[in-house]
Amino acid sequence: MALKVRVWRGKEQGAFTTYEVAREESQTVLDVVVHIQRHLEPSLSFRYACRVGMCGSCAMNVNGVARWTCRTHVSKVVAGDELEIAPLSNLPVIKDLATDMREFFDKWARAKGQFKGSKTRHDDFARVEPASKERLAADAGIECIGCGICYASCDVVSWRPDFLGPAALNRAWTLVNDQRDTQQGERLRAVAGDAGCHACHTQGSCSERCPKQLAPSAAIAGLKRLTGRMAVRGKL
């Protein structure tokens, strides 16, 4: 049996081209795209690196849903014998399946996604209680691989392009809960407001689609509660 694979070709303007790819056992969507590039269409552009769900570079829209293609089996997503593979939504298309991720990562920086500590190598290790509420909250979000699936699945990003998005806010929430970090006030100011956590409608597509089963909507809810409280107390 052969798969009929419709693949986006072009930039923002373009069209789907259909390729026939042999169906294999345990075949992933990334296998299909690699096969097309190696045997049918050498000019097809897309991104991937690790093939094992660590690097977060191979995300694409597969049959309308953003997924990590290296860990998505064709059998799980195929509709009859058809696959439609498109670049991630909410990001400019560079070519074919490769999107421009700059804005996505710039928003991490805008949400103060950088760790900044106060200790030097001469100081002792910080002792963080593993069972503390903050440590557990940070733990829940730190496995993000930056694939952009949540960002591509977020309706609020589509409606308000300046919205920081689930990944950047999830990152901010992990740092808000990092007791070693020294930029807490700046970070809360950066993530509050209508381009930040308060724009989120808690639709939960980010948590639904996150391949690492993280819950950015829970992180955003945490940021809303904290920034709301701080604002009312005049500390934001």
């Binding site: 509050a192 209508d194 308060h198 934001l236």
Partner: peptide, 16 residues
Amino acid sequence: MTTAATQAKLWYAMRI
């Protein structure tokens, strides 16, 4: 331009 603090307060008002 409303500040982030104002927007956070408005959100709080909406929630309460």
